[in-house]
Computed example of a mutant assay.
Amino acid sequence: MENANQALLSAVLEGFVDGILVLTEDGTCVHSNQKGRALCRDLSPSDRDDLPSGLKAMGKHLLESREFYPDTLLVLTQEFTSRSGQQIRARIQWLDLPTAAHAYLLVSLENKTRSAHTSAMLEAVQYNLTPRERAVWVLRRANRTYDEIAQELYITVNTVKRHLKSIYAKRKEVTEAIAN
């Protein structure tokens, strides 16, 4: 039965969109899903599979906070920029399992860059954007400046502004239709 439970837990964790790590109190990783391992490699200064120093520091702070706030469920959140330029949001909290002898730390890693891209693509469909508007919108939702969008798409800043004006008008139209 123990192996079946571990297989089920592993399958569930692999299905998460976010990276998931389960750590012991000393920072040893006892389980991670594939996305978690990939994001950790991207957050580390080298390609080694070590726990990135920022995550180690978050774990240390959570451990220290337990002494001061023993009855409070704390969730620490911090954002990092990975080696590949992705924005990663890390959340760390206690994971108390009733059958476990000691507590674990649960780390979730969200690729905010990918999430923003996915949201922008869904909005592009919802707002019925043209392919060029979609390209502009995806970059804008990734917090790119007008100049950066213009350079990447080989268009002028005025063209970027014109596309965004059209996008905002379409977005307003959809929002008003939903409200009514």
Rank of each mutant, 00 (worst) to 15 (best):
V107D: 03
R140T: 00
Q78G: 07
L105K: 07
N158Y: 08
D47Y: 04
S53T: 04
F80S: 06
R41M: 14
K172W: 11
S166W: 04
V174M: 04
Q86Y: 15
S166C: 10
P52H: 01
V17T: 10
T145Y: 00
L95W: 05
D96S: 09
D49P: 05
C29T: 15
L8N: 08
H117D: 12
A4Y: 12
D71M: 12
F68T: 06
Q151C: 14
D49M: 01
E148F: 08
K172D: 15
D147T: 15
L62P: 12
S44M: 05
H163D: 05
P45G: 02
R66A: 08
C29K: 05
Q34D: 09
I167L: 12
G54R: 05
G27C: 02
S32T: 14
G19N: 12
D71K: 13
A4D: 15
S65I: 04
E173V: 02
L51D: 08
N5T: 12
R114H: 14
T72D: 15
S108E: 05
L139T: 05
V107C: 11
H61K: 10
S44D: 13
V30R: 03
E79Y: 02
A11T: 11
F80H: 13
I88P: 07
A57Q: 11
V17N: 06
N158V: 01
E79R: 06
S46K: 02
A100W: 01
S166Y: 01
Y154H: 14
I20L: 11
W137S: 04
R91F: 06
L43S: 03
Y127D: 08
H61V: 09
T175M: 05
D26R: 03
A101T: 11
L74R: 08
Q78V: 02
Y69P: 15
I92V: 14
D71N: 15
L21P: 01
A169D: 04
A177K: 00
H163K: 01
